[in-house]
Amino acid sequence: MSAADPPVTPARWSELRRFTAARVALGRAGNGLPTAAHLDFQEAHARARDAVHSALDPAALEAALAPLGLPVLRVASQAPDRRSYLLRPDLGRRLRAGDRALLPAAPGSLLFVIADGLCASGVQAQAPAVIGHALPPLRQAGIPVAPIVLAEQARVALGDEIGGAMGARLVAMLIGERPGLTALDSLGLYLTYAPRPGRSDAERNCISNIRPGGLSPGQGAGKLVWLVRAALGQGMTGVALKDEQPLPGRLPP
Protein backbone atom coordinates (compact mmCIF):
# COMPACT_ATOMS: atom_id res chain seq x y z
CA MET A 1 0.00 0.00 0.00
CA SER A 2 1.36 3.43 -0.89
CA ALA A 3 0.76 6.56 1.17
CA ALA A 4 -1.78 7.75 -1.43
CA ASP A 5 -4.04 4.74 -0.94
CA PRO A 6 -7.15 5.25 1.20
CA PRO A 7 -6.83 3.70 4.67
CA VAL A 8 -8.02 0.10 4.90
CA THR A 9 -8.65 -1.39 8.34
CA PRO A 10 -6.37 -4.39 8.81
CA ALA A 11 -8.24 -7.66 9.47
CA ARG A 12 -6.59 -8.75 12.65
CA TRP A 13 -9.35 -11.19 13.38
CA SER A 14 -8.04 -13.14 10.40
CA GLU A 15 -7.49 -16.26 12.47
CA LEU A 16 -11.21 -16.97 12.10
CA ARG A 17 -10.37 -17.98 8.54
CA ARG A 18 -8.77 -21.18 9.86
CA PHE A 19 -12.19 -22.56 10.74
CA THR A 20 -14.26 -21.93 7.65
CA ALA A 21 -14.24 -21.56 3.88
CA ALA A 22 -16.79 -18.75 4.25
CA ARG A 23 -15.65 -15.20 3.45
CA VAL A 24 -14.89 -14.14 7.03
CA ALA A 25 -12.38 -11.57 8.30
CA LEU A 26 -12.37 -9.62 5.03
CA GLY A 27 -11.53 -6.36 6.75
CA ARG A 28 -13.41 -3.24 5.74
CA ALA A 29 -12.86 -0.02 3.86
CA GLY A 30 -15.27 2.27 5.68
CA ASN A 31 -18.32 0.05 5.74
CA GLY A 32 -17.52 -1.57 2.40
CA LEU A 33 -15.26 -4.33 1.20
CA PRO A 34 -11.57 -3.63 0.61
CA THR A 35 -10.78 -3.61 -3.12
CA ALA A 36 -9.01 -6.99 -3.21
CA ALA A 37 -11.88 -8.78 -1.45
CA HIS A 38 -14.39 -7.08 -3.74
CA LEU A 39 -12.55 -8.22 -6.87
CA ASP A 40 -12.11 -11.76 -5.48
CA PHE A 41 -15.89 -11.89 -5.23
CA GLN A 42 -16.38 -10.57 -8.76
CA GLU A 43 -14.03 -13.22 -10.14
CA ALA A 44 -15.79 -16.02 -8.28
CA HIS A 45 -19.16 -14.83 -9.58
CA ALA A 46 -17.84 -14.75 -13.12
CA ARG A 47 -16.66 -18.36 -12.82
CA ALA A 48 -20.00 -19.47 -11.39
CA ARG A 49 -21.88 -17.77 -14.23
CA ASP A 50 -19.79 -19.69 -16.74
CA ALA A 51 -20.27 -22.96 -14.83
CA VAL A 52 -24.05 -22.78 -15.25
CA HIS A 53 -23.47 -23.34 -18.93
CA SER A 54 -21.21 -26.39 -18.51
CA ALA A 55 -22.48 -29.61 -20.14
CA LEU A 56 -22.28 -33.32 -19.29
CA ASP A 57 -19.77 -35.38 -21.25
CA PRO A 58 -21.72 -38.65 -21.53
CA ALA A 59 -18.92 -40.59 -23.21
CA ALA A 60 -16.46 -39.75 -20.44
CA LEU A 61 -19.07 -40.62 -17.80
CA GLU A 62 -19.74 -43.98 -19.45
CA ALA A 63 -16.02 -44.71 -19.38
CA ALA A 64 -15.82 -43.76 -15.70
CA LEU A 65 -18.81 -45.97 -14.88
CA ALA A 66 -17.66 -48.98 -16.93
CA PRO A 67 -15.69 -50.62 -14.08
CA LEU A 68 -18.87 -50.82 -11.98
CA GLY A 69 -20.25 -53.51 -14.29
CA LEU A 70 -23.72 -52.00 -14.75
CA PRO A 71 -25.31 -51.19 -18.12
CA VAL A 72 -25.52 -47.44 -18.79
CA LEU A 73 -28.35 -45.79 -20.77
CA ARG A 74 -28.65 -42.23 -22.09
CA VAL A 75 -31.81 -40.13 -22.13
CA ALA A 76 -32.71 -36.44 -22.20
CA SER A 77 -35.52 -34.20 -21.03
CA GLN A 78 -37.80 -32.17 -23.28
CA ALA A 79 -35.70 -29.01 -22.79
CA PRO A 80 -33.88 -28.53 -26.10
CA ASP A 81 -31.18 -26.16 -24.81
CA ARG A 82 -29.82 -24.41 -21.73
CA ARG A 83 -31.96 -21.28 -21.96
CA SER A 84 -35.15 -23.35 -22.30
CA TYR A 85 -33.92 -25.49 -19.43
CA LEU A 86 -33.48 -22.43 -17.20
CA LEU A 87 -36.80 -20.80 -18.08
CA ARG A 88 -38.94 -23.95 -18.40
CA PRO A 89 -38.32 -26.36 -15.51
CA ASP A 90 -41.47 -28.23 -16.54
CA LEU A 91 -39.65 -29.37 -19.70
CA GLY A 92 -36.71 -30.57 -17.62
CA ARG A 93 -39.05 -32.84 -15.63
CA ARG A 94 -40.34 -34.74 -18.69
CA LEU A 95 -38.60 -37.32 -20.85
CA ARG A 96 -37.91 -36.47 -24.48
CA ALA A 97 -40.40 -38.15 -26.83
CA GLY A 98 -39.23 -41.66 -27.60
CA ASP A 99 -36.76 -41.98 -24.71
CA ARG A 100 -39.18 -43.90 -22.54
CA ALA A 101 -38.91 -46.80 -24.98
CA LEU A 102 -35.16 -47.01 -24.28
CA LEU A 103 -35.70 -47.83 -20.61
CA PRO A 104 -35.73 -51.50 -19.58
CA ALA A 105 -37.94 -52.83 -16.79
CA ALA A 106 -36.08 -53.16 -13.47
CA PRO A 107 -38.88 -53.96 -11.04
CA GLY A 108 -38.13 -53.61 -7.34
CA SER A 109 -34.65 -52.22 -7.90
CA LEU A 110 -32.70 -49.19 -6.71
CA LEU A 111 -32.13 -46.98 -9.73
CA PHE A 112 -29.29 -44.47 -10.07
CA VAL A 113 -29.97 -41.55 -12.42
CA ILE A 114 -27.03 -39.23 -13.15
CA ALA A 115 -28.13 -35.81 -14.35
CA ASP A 116 -26.51 -32.50 -15.26
CA GLY A 117 -28.93 -30.31 -13.32
CA LEU A 118 -27.72 -26.73 -12.93
CA CYS A 119 -24.02 -27.46 -13.27
CA ALA A 120 -22.48 -30.52 -14.87
CA SER A 121 -18.89 -30.24 -13.70
CA GLY A 122 -19.39 -31.71 -10.21
CA VAL A 123 -21.56 -34.52 -11.55
CA GLN A 124 -18.85 -35.53 -13.95
CA ALA A 125 -16.28 -35.57 -11.18
CA GLN A 126 -18.25 -37.14 -8.35
CA ALA A 127 -21.22 -39.26 -9.43
CA PRO A 128 -19.21 -42.37 -10.47
CA ALA A 129 -17.33 -42.30 -7.15
CA VAL A 130 -20.54 -42.07 -5.10
CA ILE A 131 -22.07 -45.03 -6.92
CA GLY A 132 -18.78 -46.93 -6.66
CA HIS A 133 -18.79 -46.51 -2.87
CA ALA A 134 -22.47 -47.39 -2.53
CA LEU A 135 -22.56 -50.55 -4.64
CA PRO A 136 -20.65 -52.99 -2.37
CA PRO A 137 -22.84 -52.41 0.72
CA LEU A 138 -25.98 -52.39 -1.43
CA ARG A 139 -25.02 -55.71 -3.00
CA GLN A 140 -24.11 -57.10 0.40
CA ALA A 141 -27.59 -56.17 1.61
CA GLY A 142 -29.09 -57.98 -1.38
CA ILE A 143 -30.61 -54.82 -2.86
CA PRO A 144 -30.94 -55.15 -6.65
CA VAL A 145 -29.50 -52.23 -8.65
CA ALA A 146 -30.96 -51.19 -12.02
CA PRO A 147 -28.97 -50.11 -15.09
CA ILE A 148 -27.61 -46.58 -14.60
CA VAL A 149 -29.39 -43.83 -16.56
CA LEU A 150 -27.60 -40.65 -17.72
CA ALA A 151 -30.01 -37.76 -18.24
CA GLU A 152 -29.26 -34.43 -19.93
CA GLN A 153 -31.04 -31.08 -19.31
CA ALA A 154 -32.69 -32.80 -16.34
CA ARG A 155 -34.49 -31.60 -13.20
CA VAL A 156 -34.81 -33.74 -10.06
CA ALA A 157 -38.35 -34.84 -10.91
CA LEU A 158 -37.23 -36.38 -14.20
CA GLY A 159 -36.09 -39.27 -12.01
CA ASP A 160 -39.73 -39.89 -11.08
CA GLU A 161 -40.72 -40.52 -14.69
CA ILE A 162 -37.62 -42.64 -15.38
CA GLY A 163 -38.02 -44.65 -12.18
CA GLY A 164 -41.74 -45.09 -12.77
CA ALA A 165 -41.15 -46.33 -16.31
CA MET A 166 -38.62 -48.90 -15.09
CA GLY A 167 -40.71 -49.99 -12.10
CA ALA A 168 -37.91 -49.12 -9.67
CA ARG A 169 -38.57 -49.33 -5.92
CA LEU A 170 -36.30 -46.35 -5.26
CA VAL A 171 -34.66 -43.76 -7.45
CA ALA A 172 -31.45 -42.03 -6.37
CA MET A 173 -31.05 -38.90 -8.51
CA LEU A 174 -27.45 -37.67 -8.58
CA ILE A 175 -27.72 -34.16 -9.95
CA GLY A 176 -25.54 -31.08 -10.27
CA GLU A 177 -26.40 -28.43 -7.71
CA ARG A 178 -26.65 -24.77 -8.51
CA PRO A 179 -23.08 -23.47 -8.60
CA GLY A 180 -22.11 -21.17 -5.76
CA LEU A 181 -19.12 -18.91 -5.55
CA THR A 182 -17.11 -21.31 -3.44
CA ALA A 183 -18.52 -24.56 -4.80
CA LEU A 184 -18.75 -24.95 -8.57
CA ASP A 185 -18.72 -28.71 -8.39
CA SER A 186 -21.36 -29.75 -5.89
CA LEU A 187 -23.41 -32.90 -6.35
CA GLY A 188 -26.85 -33.36 -4.79
CA LEU A 189 -28.55 -36.69 -4.23
CA TYR A 190 -32.33 -37.06 -4.02
CA LEU A 191 -33.83 -40.36 -2.92
CA THR A 192 -37.47 -41.07 -3.77
CA TYR A 193 -39.46 -44.17 -2.84
CA ALA A 194 -41.86 -45.64 -5.41
CA PRO A 195 -41.01 -43.00 -8.03
CA ARG A 196 -43.74 -41.88 -10.39
CA PRO A 197 -44.65 -38.55 -12.00
CA GLY A 198 -46.32 -36.24 -9.49
CA ARG A 199 -44.15 -37.01 -6.45
CA SER A 200 -43.59 -33.87 -4.38
CA ASP A 201 -40.31 -32.68 -2.89
CA ALA A 202 -41.63 -33.49 0.59
CA GLU A 203 -41.58 -37.14 -0.49
CA ARG A 204 -37.83 -37.14 -1.07
CA ASN A 205 -34.74 -37.21 1.10
CA CYS A 206 -31.83 -35.05 0.05
CA ILE A 207 -28.09 -35.30 0.63
CA SER A 208 -26.43 -32.14 -0.60
CA ASN A 209 -22.95 -30.70 -0.88
CA ILE A 210 -21.11 -33.80 -2.07
CA ARG A 211 -17.89 -32.12 -3.23
CA PRO A 212 -14.31 -31.40 -2.20
CA GLY A 213 -14.65 -29.40 1.01
CA GLY A 214 -18.14 -30.80 1.62
CA LEU A 215 -19.18 -34.43 1.94
CA SER A 216 -16.76 -36.87 0.31
CA PRO A 217 -18.20 -39.41 -2.18
CA GLY A 218 -17.69 -42.09 0.46
CA GLN A 219 -19.59 -40.09 3.11
CA GLY A 220 -22.37 -39.34 0.64
CA ALA A 221 -22.61 -43.01 -0.29
CA GLY A 222 -22.67 -43.96 3.40
CA LYS A 223 -25.61 -41.66 4.06
CA LEU A 224 -27.34 -42.95 0.94
CA VAL A 225 -27.02 -46.60 1.95
CA TRP A 226 -28.37 -45.76 5.41
CA LEU A 227 -31.34 -43.92 3.87
CA VAL A 228 -31.98 -46.71 1.33
CA ARG A 229 -32.19 -49.29 4.10
CA ALA A 230 -34.42 -47.05 6.20
CA ALA A 231 -36.64 -46.28 3.20
CA LEU A 232 -37.02 -49.97 2.34
CA GLY A 233 -37.73 -50.77 5.98
CA GLN A 234 -40.38 -48.07 6.38
CA GLY A 235 -41.73 -48.16 2.83
CA MET A 236 -41.30 -44.42 2.22
CA THR A 237 -38.99 -41.46 1.78
CA GLY A 238 -39.56 -37.81 2.60
CA VAL A 239 -39.98 -35.56 5.60
CA ALA A 240 -41.43 -38.45 7.62
CA LEU A 241 -38.18 -40.41 7.22
CA LYS A 242 -35.63 -38.66 9.41
CA ASP A 243 -31.91 -39.13 9.06
CA GLU A 244 -31.24 -40.49 12.54
CA GLN A 245 -27.89 -41.98 11.64
CA PRO A 246 -25.61 -41.52 14.65
CA LEU A 247 -22.90 -38.85 14.23
CA PRO A 248 -19.33 -39.26 15.30
CA GLY A 249 -18.14 -36.75 17.89
CA ARG A 250 -20.06 -34.13 19.87
CA LEU A 251 -19.90 -30.41 20.48
CA PRO A 252 -16.77 -29.00 22.00
CA PRO A 253 -17.52 -28.08 25.63
Binding site: L33, F41, L181, T182, A183, S186
Partner: peptide, 23 residues
Protein backbone atom coordinates in the same frame (compact mmCIF):
# COMPACT_ATOMS: atom_id res chain seq x y z
CA UNK B 1 -20.11 -13.59 5.36
CA UNK B 2 -18.92 -11.75 2.24
CA UNK B 3 -22.44 -12.14 0.74
CA UNK B 4 -21.50 -15.69 -0.32
CA UNK B 5 -23.48 -18.49 1.34
CA UNK B 6 -21.09 -21.42 1.15
CA UNK B 7 -23.81 -23.94 2.00
CA UNK B 8 -26.84 -22.78 0.00
CA UNK B 9 -24.75 -21.64 -2.98
CA UNK B 10 -26.37 -18.28 -3.55
CA UNK B 11 -25.48 -14.66 -2.94
CA UNK B 12 -27.28 -12.52 -0.41
CA UNK B 13 -26.43 -9.36 1.51
CA UNK B 14 -23.24 -9.32 3.56
CA UNK B 15 -22.44 -8.11 7.06
CA UNK B 16 -20.75 -5.18 5.31
CA UNK B 17 -23.96 -4.44 3.40
CA UNK B 18 -25.80 -4.21 6.71
CA UNK B 19 -23.26 -1.68 7.99
CA UNK B 20 -23.57 0.29 4.75
CA UNK B 21 -27.34 0.41 4.94
CA UNK B 22 -27.47 1.42 8.59
CA UNK B 23 -24.89 4.16 7.97
Amino acid sequence: PGADDVMLAYQSSSFHDGRYLRA
